[in-house]
Design a protein around this nucleic acid. Structure first.
Lengths: 201, 201
DNA sequence: GATAAATTTAACCAAATGGTTAATCCAAAC
DNA sequence: GTTTGGATTAACCATTTGGTTAAATTTATC
């Protein structure tokens, strides 16, 4: 990834693939976006599939390591929840097209996805589950399968971005209001999710 | 939608479009799935786009009215949360390909989506927000923007289906275990979300 | 500055794809 | 049982699309 042309191609491919998906993307559109000749795409990446793979791989590498690293920090569950929410939402704000792209291509091409994600799965998420169980045993957290909680946490962070068009319609948000909603969500969701696991006295 | 051939086409188109998306779907594949000649597709629906529209419209009509109706029932917020979670998850279990299809096409073709969903948006969701504020004023619920809570609720129901391949990898679930996870989720998520809004004494 | 190698371009190609058409089939109406 | 109109089929068509190629241009090497 040192070459200037190669970089321009990757950037353009990222743009087009993330916006249109594999099936909707056109090699010509990527070439136009990169302001180069279409043959260059094949010169550097041989096929559409290989170019796509490079983009997918990079997309996965952008998002997963950052997420995973939080799970293993030595802080309380509550701090972890707050940090996770803030970090995750900030990452997606910086890459708003990523969730749709990843979740759609993951469903469409699970084998490909599994292949590229394998480098990034660690035991970190399991550590989170263990920590939850330990703190729950002390009596401060409700007894729930931590996996169920974890999925709710992740889903609540990602869903507003995947469902943006629907949310804008139902809540009658314009773009600015949607942006404010997301900004406010970092703290609101932290509070909500921490309260969700706290046991009532 | 009275003709037998037309019905076969719609069913086949639903299958293929929901699985592959608009761009990934092929008219020939739909014809094969319906066991008819490809020209029939155009005879009954003129173009790929119109056939797609019929499928999208039906998909939206399948899922939205059922959801929306719950919001206006005259039951407490807590009962509403539980009923919403159970109903929503049951609907998606019955139509597992719908979330991915709808959320992806909604992002890809927001105008089309807006057009077909307009019949189904009601003031019901607003009624939920008002109810939340009323019950919060009594002091039993935490003070959070109800919109933030509502999005978490919906996201937590839908996300496991959108993220199924990822969840299976991270949690090391096989299909049976994933199914059990979803079954257990109906009650676990109800408990979690009700606890999330309950104020600590 | 000539030579070789890498990069870029324009033109081209074959396959796939959405869509059309003319002929045929078939059931109902008379 | 002939006619009529919709349903169905096979063959065909134009365009799009991913991919190739051979020539040209630029860059690096000596």
């Amino acid at each position: 990834m040192e070459n200037a042309t190669e970089l321009k191609i990757i950037e353009a491919a990222k743009e087009v693939f993330q916006k249109k998906g594999y099936d909707g993307a056109r090699m010509q559109e990527i070439a136009d976006e990169a302001k180069i000749n279409k043959a260059m795409l094949h010169y550097y990446f041989r096929t559409k599939e290989r170019l796509f793979d490079a983009v997918l791989q990079q997309a996965i590498a952008t998002i997963f390591p950052k997420i995973m690293s939080i799970a293993q920090e030595e802080i309380s569950i509550e701090d972890k929840i707050r940090k996770f929410v803030h970090t995750y939402i900030d990452i997606i704000i910086a890459n708003p097209a990523l969730p749709n792209f990843i979740f759609n291509e993951m469903t469409q091409r699970p084998d490909k996805f599994r292949k590229y994600i394998s480098h990034h799965i660690s035991s970190n998420s399991k550590m989170f589950m263990e920590q939850y169980k330990r703190e729950a045993a002390k009596g401060n957290l409700i007894e729930i399968e931590p996996e169920q909680f974890f999925i709710s946490l992740v889903g609540s962070c990602i869903f507003p971005f995947i469902g943006k068009p629907l949310i804008k319609i139902i809540m009658k948000f314009d773009d600015k209001e949607f942006q404010n909603f997301i900004e406010a969500r970092k703290e609101a969701l932290s509070v909500l999710m921490i309260n969700a696991v706290k046991k009532k006295k």
